[in-house]
Design a protein around this nucleic acid. Structure first.
Length: 816
RNA sequence: GCGAGAGUGGCGGAACUGGUAGACGCGCUGGACUUAGGAUCCAGUGGAGCAAUCCGUGGGGGUUCGAGUCCCCCCUUUCGCACCA
């Protein structure tokens, strides 16, 4: 191994065989445990986390690798800064993808997953990641999901897990429950049949209780702004009022509560609309209207969600009932329409057709009264409304009794006060965020640890009895019963009640994959510890995560769920922090030759092929060079040769290296490069960092000179996070026995890194007419006379200058 | 429809708080070395023009000594969410 390079070769780049060098160092790193973090004793911990992959049968996707390499560079850089970096990686191996794939190929997921994981592991190691494999995990390990079940029990204990009837997506053709990700545009992804709703009793987590905290904390996090915005939109806070309308029917009073962001328009509410699923539908419907209502409700709840989601044509039916508008005292009709959604607000609205587009459309279709209660500029209270007037910035309230003349903002406050005094309303903040349904009527997940007893109801499995093992069953295919395949295995689900010992029945649903991934980062430092999910002192040392990198596709759900679980565990005293990820950056997507990669297009990049041909170092560096990390970029095969050439030249430079002082200009450039690369990596601006190193390489080679040690040695360190193997090999050639990753990142000399001579741009009337090589600190007068001394510039100065703009060290603009 | 982003050479992409547009790389052109070269090395490479010079960052206005960058309008495009009251 030590004779990898033949000293007699004449060609400078001879001896650089990437696969030989890379395999040599991958072995050496493993033998020397160089990537293993001593988690218990690290004085200066840095937790560099990447989103763990789903280990598909196809193997590692180049998109995964792009993300991992980006994280690896950051992690290696932090290590060179002197931190003890922990870079773990596991597998998110439960879930619908694995299950469906297993069904497709007719194998069992319990057999497939270990194979896939082994293949992923091989690919990841070949890519040269600084992963601490001693702390790896898979969500499918009983040692892991035991604690996923424990998390569920903690939420249950806190009253944050509850059961209720809820709709699931049901494909009438496949006769099975579908996960949300299997529903594409309201239709089944496999057979394209419109999806129906079925109602099942399911477990939910009360994430909506945490909506305000999840929203407010965002301001404290160092996250990509786009990700924060996505979370804010998902939480969907809106301020307004809840208003009660009272309906009378058969001598009974029914209160219909609505949520509105426009309480100022309550005088214009000319009818109410409730969702077809609204609990009051039956009681409000009059005998005469019953058949029409039943028909409408049946059609809109059972019928395909496709038409409901894609059409905006308003449909509806009158209930026959009326309610009192608490502001006007008038009776207004109550309608049912599917444009009102049961799962937002209260499932009922006050319709103000004059000032809401949807209400306006509906009123037009059914001939309902439209009343103006807000005037824009130049409009009278009697000006007819051709469309809904929704612009409220400069609106003035009209036709609203004593509130006339108020601005919209004032009226909002005043009308809420009025309603409150009448006991008919209050200000209210509504969130779009729904409680998290974690039940899945599937096989491939952790069984929800609950036992149903006739006597005691839903009894949690005692913690000492965890894990509830997922049994190996052959018929794991979902069927048309609408319950989990586990429900077909009586020998598994029949168990004694933990409370009374009488025969009872296990919950046969499994939990959502998102629950598996909502706490895995807590587990990594404690992998191998059996007694607790996460050791208190290790957790204290390593968390919250210093840097988290992952895809934007998880910007909303995964991150929100992780934050929620962390908050709950914090509130229970298990954690000292309530936000799990101090810094988060979303990486971009890679496309291929300008198009999205997909199997059907046949343009998927298989990392193995490229690593074999170019080496992991060149492939990694190219991935980081093809575009800004946070934006992604276009993968083009032809471009890899550029970074390979760069690495070849690096190899050649070190091999040809001489002794001596080094050229002052080259050394100056070196210090500039050290500064630039050190500034770019923390910004994840990897593409420009690589460009800077290439630029330095060009300077190093200019004039067919032989570089000296002082010029090349620091460059090896700068390159090392990107191309770790070649750097390690060259570091050894430079005479070091220890790993380059145990060295210290080179320091730059600030004075050297800044130029003393600068190119001063000279403009005349804003147009660049020349440039002068002058001292950095040149004064304005000297600059002007230097400029006028240059005939190429002076000839444009055709008159006495009217004005001189001088930006020291940068630019001179002579205005004539 | 709403929200977030993006439009720069033949291509991928650079450009700090407004201050040389096109760094770096690919490709291309010419040359060197070669039996050969999809290797390596050197030089050139936004467009027009012999040149001086002019024109150039999706389109149109504007602010400024100066705009890829800031403001207004429009077009195209990617990604989310989609009747959210």
């Amino acid at each position: 191994m030590n004779n990898a390079v033949n000293p007699n070769v004449t060609e400078e780049t001879a001896g650089y065989d990437p696969s030989q060098v890379e395999l040599k160092w991958q072995d050496a790193w493993r033998d020397r445990d160089i990537n293993t973090t001593d988690v218990a004793n690290a004085p200066d911990p840095f937790y560099a986390l990447m989103m763990f992959p789903y280990p598909s049968a196809e193997g590692l996707h180049v998109g995964n690798l792009f993300a991992f390499v980006g994280n690896d560079i950051y992690g290696r850089f932090q290590r060179l800064q002197g931190h003890n970096v922990f870079e773990p990686l596991g597998y998110d191996a439960f879930g619908i993808h694995s299950e469906n794939y297993a069904l497709k190929v007719g194998k069992h997921p319990m057999d497939l997953i270990p194979q896939n994981i082994a293949n992923f592991r091989r690919q990841l190691e070949r890519a040269g990641l600084m992963v601490d494999w001693s702390k790896s995990l898979s969500t499918t390990d009983p040692d892991y999901y035991k604690w996923t079940q424990w998390v569920f029990l903690q939420l249950l204990k806190q009253g944050l897990a509850y059961k209720k009837q809820a709709a699931v997506n049901w494909c009438p053709s496949c006769k099975t429950v579908l996960a949300n990700e299997q529903v594409i545009g309201g239709a089944c992804e496999r057979c394209d049949t419109p999806v129906e709703q079925r109602f099942l009793s399911q477990w939910f987590f009360r994430i909506s209780d945490y909506a305000q905290r999840l929203l407010a904390n965002l301001d404290t996090l160092d996250w990509s702004e786009t990700t924060k915005t996505a979370q804010r939109n998902w939480i969907g806070r809106s301020e307004g009022a809840e208003i009660s309308f009272v309906a009378k029917r058969n001598g009974e009073e029914h209160e219909i509560r609505v949520f509105t962001t426009r309480p100022d328009t309550v005088f214009g509410a000319t009818y109410l609309v409730i969702a077809p699923e609204h609990p009051l539908v039956a009681r409000l419907t009059g005998a005469l209207y019953k058949s029409a209502v039943d028909q409408y409700v049946a059609r809109s709840t059972k019928q395909d969600l496709v038409s409901r989601k894609t059409t905006t044509e308003k449909t509806g039916v009158f209930t026959g009932a009326f309610a009192i508008n608490p502001a006007t005292g008038q009776e207004i009709p109550i309608w049912i329409s599917d444009y009102v959604l049961m799962d937002y607000g209260t499932g009922a609205i006050m319709a103000v057709p004059g000032h809401d587009e949807r209400d306006f459309e509906f009123a037009k279709v059914f001939g309902l009264p439209i009343v103006r209660v807000v005037c824009g500029e130049g409009e009278e209270p009697t000006t007819p409304l051709e469309t809904a007037f929704t612009e409220n910035e400069r609106g003035v309230i009209v036709n609203s009794g004593r509130f006339d003349g108020m601005t919209v903002a004032t009226a909002k406050r005043e009308i809420i006060t009025m309603l409150q005094e009448k006991g008919a309303g209050k200000s209210f903040v509504n969130y779009r965020l729904h409680d998290w349904c974690i039940s899945r009527q599937r096989y491939w997940g952790p069984p929800i640890p609950i036992i149903y007893c006739d006597e005691h109801g839903a009894v949690p499995v005692p913690e000492k009895d965890l894990p509830v093992l997922l049994p190996h069953v052959d018929d794991f295919k979902p069927d048309d019963s609408g319950v989990s395949p586990l429900a077909r295995h009586e020998d598994w689900y029949r168990v004694p009640c933990p409370e009374c010992g009488r025969m009872a029945r296990r919950e046969t649903d499994v939990s959502d994959t998102f629950l598996d991934s909502a706490w895995y980062f807590l587990r990594y430092p404690s992998v191998g510890i059996d007694e607790v999910p996460f050791d208190a002192s290790l957790t204290q040392k390593w968390l919250p995560v210093d840097s988290y990198i992952g895809g934007n596709e998880h910007a909303v759900l995964h991150l929100l769920y992780s934050r929620f679980i962390t908050m709950v565990l914090h509130d229970m005293g298990f954690l000292t922090f309530e936000e799990p990820f101090t810094r988060f950056r979303a990486h971009g997507l890679i496309i291929r030759n300008g198009a999205k990669m997909s199997k059907s297009r046949g343009n998927v990049v298989i990392p193995d092929h490229y690593i074999e041909k170019w080496g992991a170092d060149a492939f990694r560096t190219y991935l980081m060079f093809l575009g800004p990390f946070e934006e992604g970029g276009d993968f083009r095969d032809a471009s890899i040769s550029g970074v390979k050439r760069f690495l070849d030249r690096l190899w050649a430079s070190v091999n040809a290296m001489g002794d001596g002082q080094g050229d002052p200009e080259v050394i100056r450039k070196l210090h500039q490069t050290i500064r630039k690369v050190g500034e770019d990596i923390p910004k994840l601006s990897y593409n420009t960092a690589i460009a800077a190193m290439m630029e330095y390489m060009n300077a190093l080679r200019r004039g067919e000179r032989t570089p000296v040690r002082a010029e090349v040695e620091p460059l090896v360190q700068l390159v090392s996070p990107f191309a770790p193997h070649i750097a390690e090999e060259l570091w050894q050639k430079l005479g070091y026995n220890d790993s380059v990753f145990n060295s210290k990142w080179p320091q730059y000399d600030a004075a050297l890194a800044s130029e003393e001579k600068i190119e001063l741009v000279v403009q005349v009337n804003g147009k660049t007419r020349g440039k002068l090589s002058v001292a950095r600190d040149i004064e304005q007068d000297a600059a002007v006379s230097a400029a006028m001394g240059d005939p190429a510039i002076a000839k444009f100065v055709t008159a006495e200058p009217r004005k001189i703009i001088f930006v020291p060290g940068r630019l001179l603009n002579i205005v004539v």
